[in-house]
Write a protein that binds this DNA or RNA. Structure first.
Length: 815
RNA sequence: GCCCAGGUGGCGGAAUUGGUAGACGCGCGAGACUCAAAAUCUCGUGUCCUUUUCGGACAUGUGGGUUCGAGUCCCACCCUGGGCACCA
């Protein structure tokens, strides 16, 4: 009988559905060890699931099935992220409201996920666009508002003057509108910000407590970008005005030969000498214009102000310049230029012919080239000469602080989170603008603020939200004075919904029939948190993972959750490339569609092949031919099942030593391999074991049914449909989900046979087979005499040294 | 430019407390089955030398080093992928 995967997979998917997926339904508070295995939920597009989703989802499915069989209470849920720009753009293109098609797209995703046999707890399914869901997103925003974490401030957006709409950064690459190609502008709009920067220190420090890939942690650290330094006051010559600069290298202050202000610096014009004013004004005007159009030039530019400041340490008079290489938004917007010890200052000094004074030398090397940016020993620094950089910083810092001219400061690259989008397809921000009371937050009972179901939401032309045009929706009453007021028309960013979805799975009320309901139950959160395994692509290394961590910490602060970090262990799957080794993309025509693979080879083959492709974390290309190998393997497993079934079990031939040992070691390898997510290796071991079972039948007429059925249990997390079908083929009535995971005997893991490699000068020259591990050096030396290599390499040679590793190797060093 | 990860057969990849390099799969070659093809099965398959056998040499990006022994450790360099990019 042929392996009819279509029939088998359909059959078992129907059985699981008929049982209402109860075998995967997770019960809260069960007295078993808990484990929360989470996928990054998919963004709902019209394209449906791609092979990258299947990769991560298969990995977590294997883990989930494995831990269930090992007696864990496993939470393994799935949901849908569906607000956001891509969908809105698609909706504009097809001239339909997202509400009219997004639910259909969700249905399609669900259908696809089920067709691959993922064992989710479907009773906990969520979608970010459900009003019951985003009611909570809005409520959490209100809590942040209440705690003073939300403020409104002008912030730049990319604006396309031709499409008359705001663009996301990724839609305005290189200052060009992605859709029409016209030059984009930077427009300043009042936008809502969340003070994530208040959490910078905690977001940084708590990384230490997480079991995440080191590179992802490093990326987050760099993103937060903490730098500790000093703010130093430089006094203007002939004036009381002081300019504050920020530096992390206070030890180089004797080498400061100029000061640079950003063009946005409030003192820029004020301190400029009359003769220089025209020049400076022109420069500032040009630079701000370039900024508006998002033009960034590598070339260093700048202009002299005619003014000078006095270096507070050596009283040296140094010129003040203005240059756009100094950023307004970081530090104080002003720096001290130390060209000898900073690359950019060096280039600036070279270009404008400014003085370069070396004040730090390396501790060991003598010859150096300027700029020398590392630390070292101070020279030409007055009383501080001879100090090491770090000591000098402390000392100079303290002396300046004593004189009231400096303070210790910490700056972060991390910026506050711009939380508004001038878009329709997002959670409406639940605030009211009242002509009497100003901005007023809505009351909890008035949530959710739902999106109006309108047909058209064309851009307003001003960069404002399309909701601005929907007058009936905007008009409302002020919750405070009850007078006429307007709704906020900006919506939340796509990240909002994904900041707490892992909590929603826990909190969803599974009992409420039909109706979707979230009940905040801290005991449940206490039982399930933190997420034990979080698997997804590295593209979310910074933003999603940082925002979600921040969100969680906020909920911790207001007492809604009890722990400080949401995701204890993170695992990043590697990208699956197209067969040509390129990133999959429609334009390159190298996209592999999982639906088609399921149709041609079946879900089990798809799952297993994606796991066999290579290490889960590695980037690896799809191979159209390669998948046949896994397909053949499953076919062989199937035909082996047929053979075993036909043959009456013959008791005398039943147990075979070789099979016993091989099976025991396979159980070990599979158990440990799954825990470490080394699925590709586990599968290769299964292939070897299957070969053995078949060889035993064909060559020795040994039919070991028990071993085979144990093997099927090991295969089950990888290929659930086939395994379950074979299981039932042998008269087993239960679902494999409820079978306990096979145990291995550590004693049997020890090898029965040892091959001892015989080396001459480190090169393998022969091999000794022994059934004892404990062969002594003496015994081996005797045995070696019988080997052919003896005549050639050892006889009549002087052995100067013997290296012997018990049970492994013996190395004769000869002259 | 800086930070991180990685370079192993024709291809995807195994092998790290330093101890048989190339497991497993793809592809390829030969054979069996077949009228034939597909499918399946069996055997072979790093490169080179050797008439064959026996065997040997060379091989884990490049060049050095440590070691009885290096894919694995150290130094320098080259290449690929990812992230950040005037952050003082």
């Amino acid at each position: 009988m042929k392996y009819n995967f279509r029939k088998i997979e359909k059959k078992w998917q129907n059985v699981w559905q008929k049982k209402k997926f109860l075998m995967w339904r997770t019960i809260d508070f069960v007295k078993k060890p808990k484990i929360y295995i989470l996928d990054m939920f998919p963004y709902i597009s019209g394209e449906g699931l791609h092979v990258g989703h299947v990769e991560g989802y298969t990995a977590t499915d294997i883990l989930s099935r494995f831990y269930r069989m090992n007696g864990y209470n496993v939470l393994h849920p799935m949901g849908y992220d569906a607000f956001g720009l891509p969908t809105e753009n698609f909706a504009i293109k097809i001239k339909k409201n997202p509400l009219s098609f997004v639910p259909k797209h969700i249905d399609r995703f669900r259908k696809q996920l089920r067709s691959i046999g993922f064992s989710y707890d479907w009773s906990r399914e969520i979608a970010t666009i459900d009003p019951e869901y985003y009611k909570w997103t809005q409520l959490m925003f209100l809590k942040m508002y209440e705690k003073g974490l939300v403020y409104e401030k002008e912030a730049p957006i990319n604006f396309c003057p031709s499409c008359k709409t705001g663009l996301a950064d990724e839609e305005a690459i290189g200052g060009r509108c992605e859709r029409c190609g016209s030059q984009t502008e930077i427009k300043y709009l009042k936008q809502w910000h969340i003070k994530i920067t208040l959490y910078a220190e905690r977001l940084l420090n708590d990384l230490e407590t997480l079991d995440w890939p080191e590179n992802i942690k490093e990326m987050q650290r760099n993103w937060i970008g903490k730098s500790e330094g000093y703010e130093v006051l430089f006094s203007l010559e002939n004036s009381n005005e002081k300019i504050a600069v920020f530096t992390t290298r206070l030890d180089t202050i004797y080498g400061a030969t100029f000061v640079v202000l950003s063009p946005h610096h409030p003192l820029a014009l004020k301190i400029t000498q009359p003769d220089y004013l025209l020049n400076v004004e022109n420069y500032i005007y040009e630079e701000i214009k370039k900024e508006r159009f998002g033009i960034y030039e590598k070339e260093i530019t700048g202009v002299f102000t005619g003014s000078y400041v006095i270096n507070p340490l050596n009283n040296k008079k140094i010129p003040i310049w203005i240059s756009s290489y100094v950023l307004a938004g970081y530090g104080t917007g002003a720096i001290m230029g130390v060209p000898a010890h900073d690359e950019r200052d060096f280039n600036f000094a070279k270009k404008f012919d400014l003085e370069i004074i070396q004040v730090v030398k390396p501790e060991k090397r003598i010859k150096i080239e300027l700029p020398y940016v590392e630390e070292g020993i101070l020279i030409s620094s007055g009383e501080y000469s001879g100090f090491k950089s770090d000591e000098a910083r402390e000392k100079i810092g303290q002396d300046l602080i004593d004189r009231g001219l400096a303070k210790k400061t910490v700056y972060y690259k991390l910026r506050d989170w711009i939380f508004s989008r001038q878009r329709y397809w997002g959670e409406p921000i639940p605030l009211i603008r009242c002509p009497q009371c100003g901005v007023v937050p809505l009351k909890e009972k008035d949530l959710p603020v739902t999106l109006p179901k309108v047909k058209s939401y064309e851009p307003t032309g001003t960069g404002e939200s399309p909701l601005k045009n929907i007058k009936i929706w905007i008009k409302t009453r002020c919750p405070q004075c009850k007078g006429p007021a307007e709704r906020e028309t900006q919506t939340m960013p796509q990240w909002a919904g994904s900041c707490w979805y892992y909590l929603a799975y826990i909190l969803k009320n599974q009992k409420s029939k039909g109706k979707y309901e979230i009940v905040w139950d801290k005991n449940k959160l206490k039982y399930w948190l933190p997420v034990d395994f979080y698997v997804g692509g590295a593209e979310h290394a910074v933003l999603h993972l940082l925002y979600a961590r921040f969100w969680h910490k906020f909920l911790y602060d207001i007492g809604w959750v009890h722990n400080k970090e949401p995701f204890q262990k993170l695992f990043n799957q590697g990208l699956i490339l197209g067969p040509d080794g390129q990133k999959m993309s429609k334009s390159k025509g190298n996209v592999i569609n999982p639906d088609e693979v399921v149709k041609e080879y079946g879900a089990d083959t798809l799952r297993m092949y994606e796991m066999f492709l290579g290490p889960l974390e590695a980037e690896k290309p799809w191979s159209v031919e390669g998948i046949k190998g896994v397909f053949r393997f499953l076919n062989r497993v199937w035909s082996l099942a047929q053979k075993l079934k036909k043959e009456k079990p013959d008791k005398s031939k039943k147990s075979d030593e070789e099979i016993k040992y091989a099976l025991n070691s396979l159980i070990y390898e599979t158990t440990e391999g799954i825990k470490k997510m080394r699925f590709n290796v586990v599968i290769s071991k299964m292939m070897v074991f299957e070969d053995l079972l078949r060889a035993k039948i064909e060559k020795e007429n040994i039919y070991d049914r028990e071993a085979f059925l144990t093997f099927i249990k090991l295969l089950f997390p990888f290929a659930p449909h086939l395994s379950q079908e074979i299981w039932s083929l042998f008269g087993k009535k239960n679902l494999l989900d409820f079978e306990p995971w096979p145990k291995y005997d550590p004693k049997l893991l020890e090898k029965k046979q040892f091959s001892i490699v015989v080396q001459i000068n480190g090169k393998k020259r022969g091999i000794l087979i022994s059934d004892k591990e404990t062969l002594t050096e003496k015994e081996i030396k005797e045995k070696v005499k019988a080997l052919p290599l003896y005549e050639k390499y050892l006889k009549n040679k002087k052995i100067s040294k013997i290296i012997f590793v018990k049970g492994k190797i013996i190395n004769f060093v000869v002259k």
